[in-house]
Simulated assay, not measured.
Amino acid sequence: MMHCPHLTPDNQCEVACQLAGCRVQTTPTACNACQNNDNPCAINVVTIGMALVNKKRRKQDVTELEALLRNYMPDEDPMPATLKMSSYRPGPGNELKKMIAWFAKPSETCNCETRVDTMNDWGAEGCRRNIDTIVDWLLEEAHARGLPHGRFTATVARSLVNTAIRKYERKFPEGAPEPDQDDPEDEFDR
């Protein structure tokens, strides 16, 4: 992480925390973007975006933050197209989502994003304890999309979940981060 007067020892961005009214973890990528902003280490597109994403994840009103963000965005595009918490939060769910993204995109009717968040909340051990539920979710989505969903597919799904858990653990060997910790590999969707 960079040196910033608003960065706590446990990687909380105090600026984003104040805007969101809750704890907001940051990442080296977010810190670099903030440092390179015209208004570094202060209220800017990066800190507002982190606050906005955290409030959305908590299903809180974001009207004020969206209006504030519009004021800080360049004139050509007043608002990002999407602000997804999955872009800011590591976990086994995000790892699984990345692994299957090439053939299974979330649809308007699926519970994919909620399930990704649930897996991230559970962490590695929780996902291991709930692997049957996760496999059932994958089979349910496969069935809904007209994809194979039998015993062989269940075996493949279980393998994918275990691989996602291991990938997550390799990236975060110290253990599961707090629920609002950012994923250093993901960035703002725009």
Results as ranks from 00 to 15, higher is better:
90 P>T: 05
90 P>I: 04
91 G>E: 02
92 P>G: 11
92 P>H: 06
93 G>P: 07
93 G>M: 06
94 N>E: 04
94 N>V: 09
94 N>P: 01
95 E>M: 07
95 E>H: 08
95 E>V: 11
98 K>S: 15
98 K>H: 14
100 I>S: 07
100 I>M: 14
100 I>Q: 15
100 I>E: 10
101 A>M: 12
102 W>G: 15
102 W>Y: 15
102 W>T: 05
103 F>S: 11
103 F>I: 11
104 A>E: 04
105 K>P: 03
105 K>R: 10
106 P>E: 03
106 P>G: 07
107 S>F: 07
107 S>T: 08
108 E>C: 04
108 E>D: 09
108 E>Q: 10
109 T>W: 09
109 T>I: 11
110 C>P: 08
110 C>A: 14
110 C>I: 11
111 N>Y: 14
112 C>Y: 06
114 T>Y: 10
116 V>C: 02
118 T>N: 14
118 T>C: 11
119 M>G: 00
122 W>F: 10
122 W>T: 14
123 G>F: 00
123 G>Y: 00
125 E>R: 08
126 G>P: 08
126 G>E: 14
127 C>H: 01
128 R>E: 10
131 I>L: 04
131 I>P: 04
133 T>L: 13
133 T>H: 14
133 T>N: 12
134 I>S: 03
134 I>L: 08
134 I>K: 05
135 V>Y: 07
136 D>H: 15
137 W>G: 00
138 L>G: 08
138 L>C: 12
139 L>F: 15
140 E>S: 09
140 E>T: 11
140 E>H: 15
142 A>I: 06
142 A>Q: 04
143 H>M: 13
144 A>Y: 07
145 R>N: 10
146 G>C: 02
146 G>K: 01
147 L>I: 04
147 L>V: 08
148 P>I: 03
148 P>F: 01
150 G>D: 05
152 F>N: 11
154 A>I: 00
154 A>C: 00
154 A>S: 07
154 A>G: 10
155 T>L: 13
158 R>N: 04
158 R>M: 04
158 R>G: 07
159 S>Q: 14
160 L>R: 01
164 A>R: 15
166 R>A: 13
166 R>Q: 07
168 Y>H: 06
169 E>M: 12
170 R>Y: 10
170 R>P: 02
171 K>I: 01
171 K>Q: 11
173 P>K: 06
173 P>Q: 03
173 P>G: 05
174 E>A: 15
176 A>Y: 00
176 A>V: 06
178 E>L: 02
179 P>Y: 03
179 P>E: 06
180 D>S: 02
